Amino acid sequence: MKMPLLNTLVCCALLGLGGCASSQVDPSQYSGFLKDYSRLKPAQSPSGAPVMRWIDNDVNAAQYTQVYIEPSQFYPKPQPTAVISAQTLQAITRYYDSALKRELGKDLSIASAPGPHTLIVRPAITAVSTSNQGLKPYEVIPIALVAAAVNTASGGRDQNVDIATEAAVLDGDSNKVLAQVVRKGSGKPLENDKTQLGLEDVKPVLDGWAADMRASFEKIKAGNGS
């Protein structure tokens, strides 16, 4: 291999190692689903994940006995691909709904419509994407780097799976926004760019989001002295 090419590949590899994909949604990636992003601040979810979040300081969680979960949606409307099918997209929103009901139903009755003493949870999936994984440290060794570069060119590298959500929580009587959150997570890596994404690859992320929402409600309720 010619040295200039080798140097270029090594440089690209080192740049890839130096930068790590952020686990927090950048403001430039906000979808527009939420009505007001200006109040969002960096925070940690109950599980320790980085999120952008806002909670009304005056909210009294103890007054809510029910929760109405609006059917989750994709925002903006996604375009299925060879890797992410329309069937998988539908399965993701359906499972997200069931996970939210399962978790929030541990503390609140699931309501069939908004009303007094009812929280409205309005969730959206705002991104589902796959991308090439960066070079691993051992692949910086020149001989391995050559193989890695060829593998990338042929679409053979493992694929990162990223999924993001935005959600608002409202008062079921007044429709006042009580809380907002923006976050993302990483699903199970795919073998290559020909491997289809399945619901099982992102289920743990959806389960984690739902569990964190329940834990957040419990924390706020405890803070109200209940």
Results as ranks from 00 to 15, higher is better:
1 M>Y: 12
1 M>G: 15
2 K>V: 09
3 M>T: 15
4 P>S: 11
5 L>K: 11
7 N>K: 14
12 C>R: 14
13 A>Y: 05
14 L>N: 08
19 G>R: 12
21 A>G: 13
21 A>S: 15
21 A>R: 13
21 A>W: 06
24 Q>V: 14
24 Q>M: 13
25 V>W: 00
28 S>M: 08
32 G>D: 03
34 L>M: 03
38 S>R: 06
42 P>D: 05
43 A>E: 12
44 Q>S: 15
46 P>A: 04
47 S>H: 05
49 A>L: 12
49 A>K: 15
49 A>C: 05
53 R>L: 14
55 I>Q: 10
58 D>Q: 12
61 A>R: 07
63 Q>W: 06
66 Q>E: 09
69 I>Q: 01
71 P>E: 06
72 S>Y: 03
78 P>N: 06
79 Q>M: 13
80 P>G: 00
83 V>P: 05
85 S>M: 06
86 A>S: 15
86 A>G: 13
86 A>Q: 15
87 Q>L: 13
89 L>T: 03
93 T>S: 11
93 T>P: 01
93 T>A: 07
95 Y>N: 12
96 Y>W: 07
97 D>R: 04
98 S>H: 07
99 A>E: 12
100 L>M: 07
104 L>Y: 04
104 L>K: 01
106 K>S: 09
107 D>L: 10
107 D>S: 15
108 L>W: 03
109 S>T: 09
110 I>H: 01
110 I>S: 00
111 A>L: 01
114 P>C: 03
115 G>Y: 02
115 G>T: 02
117 H>I: 02
118 T>E: 01
119 L>I: 01
121 V>C: 01
122 R>C: 02
124 A>Y: 00
129 S>W: 03
132 N>S: 08
132 N>H: 09
137 P>H: 08
140 V>T: 12
140 V>E: 06
147 A>W: 13
147 A>F: 12
147 A>L: 13
147 A>C: 07
148 A>K: 07
149 A>L: 04
149 A>T: 13
152 T>C: 10
154 S>A: 14
154 S>D: 11
156 G>N: 10
157 R>K: 14
158 D>Y: 11
159 Q>K: 11
159 Q>H: 13
163 I>D: 08
163 I>Q: 10
164 A>C: 10
165 T>S: 14
165 T>G: 09
167 A>R: 08
172 G>H: 02
174 S>N: 07
176 K>P: 05
178 L>I: 06
183 R>Q: 15
187 G>D: 08
191 E>N: 13
192 N>S: 10
192 N>K: 08
196 Q>K: 14
197 L>S: 05
198 G>D: 08
200 E>H: 11
202 V>L: 04
203 K>T: 10
206 L>V: 04
207 D>L: 00
207 D>T: 05
209 W>P: 00
210 A>W: 02
212 D>P: 01
218 E>G: 05
219 K>A: 12
220 I>G: 02
221 K>Y: 01
222 A>F: 07
222 A>Q: 15
223 G>M: 02
225 G>Y: 08
225 G>P: 04
226 S>Q: 09
